[in-house]
Amino acid sequence: MANIIPPLKSLRVFEQAAYFGNIVKAAESLNISPSAVSHQIAGLESLLDKKLFYRTGRGIKLTGIGQQYLDAISGALHTLGAATNDIIERQEQETLRIHTAPTFGLLYLLPRLEKFKKQYPEYQINIDCSYENIQFNLSQTDVDIRYGSFSWKGLSAIPIKNEYAIVLAHPDFLKKNQINEPIDLLKCDLIASQCMLMQWQQWFAYHNVQIENLSYAFSFDRSYMSFEAAKQNLGVIVESSLLAQPFIQSGELIPVFGSNYMIPIDAHYIVFPHTHKKYAKVQHFINWLEEELHNSR
């Protein structure tokens, strides 16, 4: 004979009625009518063919068999509720773990995370930043935004397109320094970004400017510090057009030359293990980021 399982609603009503010892209070706690409570109890008693309550002057009270039944099912109801809450919390708190190059994380990703969160509120976002290429097999990282030349075997890598090396300066710097062509930069304070793929020597060589000894007013190992230095009118930088967007849009930095002096670079990649393609959260992030990159060209 198969086990007989009463309707969950009837069990919930029975539990609340036993707790309050009152039909009206049980109805209020469940947001249903007192007659509905009486109906559910009557249905459960009919199914069990046992009397579960008897009436008192102040309400209702469990019979002996009713107390035994309550003791037997209370643990199961608690387990069911806990399991349901656990699943709900897991769905709400599923973590998307992103590792990113620091400047990309600070200047490009962080200002746009609110958009991603609104589109995918079910994810908790964890972001780690460093220039190191993390080992996916030794971490819980889902996707990595890497900076540098592509040389990662066994991983899927999507290049971020339409990124250029661009020369930038504060508007006041350009008012004080007349710069019409690349060779004029040799008379200016240059700021070096040590991590930038396109260094000043390469930029000058690309534009056929011969140099022997090149000196810098400032040199930084983080691009965001180079941006800040240029923003404070300390010199000229050659940096990523992608990362420069917020400074250009705000007018804090402006391109020194026209677009014909911009040099295309493949600097950033979206990297992840092949097996991560099957994860919905990874696909959601990649699709969203690619759309953002397309819209911010």
Results as ranks from 00 to 15, higher is better:
Asn233Thr: 13
Tyr147Val: 05
Tyr123Glu: 10
Glu45His: 01
His274Met: 07
Trp152Gln: 10
Asp266Tyr: 09
Ala2Leu: 15
Glu181Lys: 14
Leu110Lys: 15
Tyr261Asn: 11
His99Leu: 00
Ile134Tyr: 08
His99Pro: 06
Ser223Lys: 10
Pro34Asp: 07
Ile5Pro: 01
Leu77Pro: 07
Leu168Lys: 10
Leu293Val: 09
Ile179Glu: 10
Trp203Met: 03
Ile265His: 00
Ala72Trp: 12
Ala280Asp: 09
Ser139Leu: 05
Phe257Gln: 08
Glu212Phe: 04
Leu109Cys: 06
Tyr147Arg: 13
Tyr261Ala: 06
Pro6Gln: 04
Asn162Met: 11
Phe116Ser: 09
Glu163Asp: 15
Ile237His: 13
Leu185Lys: 12
Gly59Ile: 04
Tyr19Leu: 15
Cys129Ile: 14
Gly21Met: 11
Val282Glu: 10
Gln201Phe: 12
Leu186Tyr: 13
Lys175Phe: 04
Ala26Asn: 10
Thr100His: 01
Ile73Asp: 10
Met262Val: 00
Ile125Gly: 04
His207Gln: 03
Gln199Gly: 02
Glu92Ile: 09
Leu293Glu: 12
Ile127Asn: 02
Gln199Arg: 11
Gly57Tyr: 13
Glu212Pro: 00
Ser74Arg: 10
Leu214Phe: 00
Pro159Thr: 09
Val256Gln: 04
Tyr131Pro: 00
His39Glu: 07
Thr79Gly: 12
Ile191Ala: 07
Lys277Glu: 14
Met1Leu: 04
Leu47Asn: 09
Asp189Val: 04
Gln40Val: 01
Gln93Tyr: 06
Ala2Tyr: 11
His207Ala: 12
Asp266Gly: 01
Gly57Cys: 08
Tyr131Cys: 03
Pro102Glu: 05
Ala72Lys: 08
Ile32Asn: 05
Gln16Gly: 01
Ser35Val: 13
Ala26Ser: 15
His170Leu: 06
Asn177Arg: 13
Asn85Phe: 09
Ala217Lys: 08
Asn31Ala: 14
Glu163Arg: 05
Ala230Tyr: 02
Leu109Pro: 13
Leu197Arg: 08
Lys25Ala: 07
Phe257Trp: 13
Thr63Glu: 07
Cys195Pro: 08
His99Asp: 12
Pro102Asp: 07
Thr95Asn: 11
Gln245Pro: 02
Ile270His: 07
Ala76Tyr: 12
Met196Tyr: 07
Ile263His: 03
Asp49Gln: 14
Gln194Arg: 13
Phe285Thr: 05
Tyr269Arg: 08
Asp71Thr: 14
Ser250Val: 02
Pro255Phe: 01
Ser259His: 03
Ile41Asn: 06
Phe173Cys: 09
Tyr269Pro: 00
Gly66Trp: 04
Ala205Lys: 04
His207Pro: 04
Asp172Lys: 13
Ile4Arg: 11
Arg297Lys: 14
Asn233Ala: 14
Ser219Ile: 06
Asp266Cys: 06
Leu11Asn: 02
